[in-house]
Design a protein around this nucleic acid. Structure first.
Lengths: 248, 248
DNA sequence: CGAGGTGTTGAGATTTGTCAACCTACGTGG
DNA sequence: CCACGTAGGTTGACAAATCTCAACACCTCG
């Protein structure tokens, strides 16, 4: 994606959080300029991860958090018996790796779904710095808290929604997050397979496919493989809220 | 549950984290004695919550975290459209309220399922103290990280397991946590209704009931209303791992 | 003793999963 | 530049799991 002759200078120009276009979405939110510069000193490494490559894997030693600078990831938890659960899809500005803090080992995999770049945030140094910069600590707590709340939302979706509602919620959420990043909220290019969507939503891939088809037939979507256009966002939202069908 | 003539002295004797029998499960894990004393100074309020009472409610201003000293709670996330999701069942030593850190408002309800007592941990003061006591900050991060990982497990259960497996996982988890607290891991008294279990597991209450019956018929459980005895923990575990039926 | 909340069970409807066939798009190498 | 192989996606018919609705049993508490 990135042309090497362009990437090199970018590494120099935007290497710091203070200059990063994602700073309003990412860890530095709320930091004063001098505080942000101290964070810059910490986040000095970037890492390219090609599509299909693993950034970290379940049971890897935990050393760092990762901020997505560009690209798209899935995080998957794997149970001993081989069950696989996509726990989230992550995009630019999102932070990954919190699962590792609790036991000094990662408890899920992070896999790039397109060629990506992440900022490496060494946790030991972040921990150190956050003693000096209270606002950084607070922000870290906030981000983790929001991750917990986000997961509540996923649980609600998995436990309470039927297939079509789940797919609607998935698309609606994706669109909203793309919009926050300045992309079109209606023209989506999915970076994941039907199988991966299914694993995330607790559905089989055929069911996901059928839901896409049904939403197309209802005039809510335009679907061509991974290109999805949301034609009727309001109807999608009604589905998410379960107003389309009776429900106690 | 607690007899008042006993409770009063207890309040004096065990008022501090340093003396609390739950300190190995709760926030103070890993703190040095002097650090723990500083935490004692902070956690000075206790609050009794009767069965059915709400400790905090969705959209309440966030001021404190809560450590369960005795009793049993459920936490429920409610979506705008009235869908209700039990996100967890909490028992002695568990911490609640992390959902509120992200936006200074709680994002779920905490309801006592039996007469309970919680320690109130004012967040602003905890935040302050954790600057001075790095280990406290680290412990807080660990606890939140584990909450994230716990929720991954719930997502895996909701997305990947069939009804009977979910019920088995629920019981097995409950038993394990009771055992960690020194209770029998085989004789359970459920503090929640079938409805609440169902909401947690993404099943209707009738399905939960039928699963209990089936597990009884299979000789794995002895069920009388809310009294459940686990007769064959190994079989229960096999169910959790999905070894009982074919699965890709 | 009665009332109401809770739990169980049954029959039938609905949703989702399973299996299999086929289609489509994309990348590779000739 | 085209042909082919393969992974990913769609669709159909049928099976299985779960939900729905309804009746009834049980238990606790006033």
């Amino acid at each position: 994606m990135l042309c090497p002759t362009v990437r090199a200078p970018l590494d120099h120009i935007e290497v710091a959080c203070s200059n990063c276009s994602l700073r309003e979405l990412c860890l530095p939110v709320g930091l004063a300029p001098d505080e942000m510069q101290r964070l810059d000193g910490l986040v000095s490494t970037r890492r390219n991860v090609k599509r299909g490559e693993v950034l970290f894997r379940d049971n890897d030693a935990f050393t760092s958090l990762y901020a997505i600078r560009a690209g798209f990831f899935k995080t998957c938890a794997t149970s001993e018996d081989g069950r696989d659960q996509v726990t989230g899809f992550m995009m630019a500005g999102d932070l990954m790796g919190f699962d590792g803090i609790g036991h000094d080992r990662h408890r899920c995999d992070a896999v790039a779904l397109e060629d990506s770049q992440v900022c490496v945030i060494p946790y030991a140094r972040l921990d150190e710095l956050s003693r000096d910069v209270p606002e950084l600590q607070r922000q870290l707590n906030r981000v983790m808290s929001r991750e917990i709340v986000r997961e509540h939302g996923v649980m609600m979706m998995l436990a309470g929604m039927r297939a079509e509602e789940r797919v609607a919620a998935f698309l609606s959420n994706l669109a909203q997050r793309l919009e926050m990043r300045g992309f079109s909220p209606s023209a989506l290019i999915l970076r994941m397979t039907r199988q991966e969507i299914g694993t995330y939503l607790g559905l089989k891939l055929e069911t996901v496919s059928r839901c896409f088809t049904r939403l197309r037939d209802e005039g809510i979507l335009d679907v061509h493989q991974r290109n999805v256009r949301i034609l009727d966002a309001a109807a999608l939202q009604r589905l998410v809220k379960g107003l389309q069908r009776s429900r106690a």
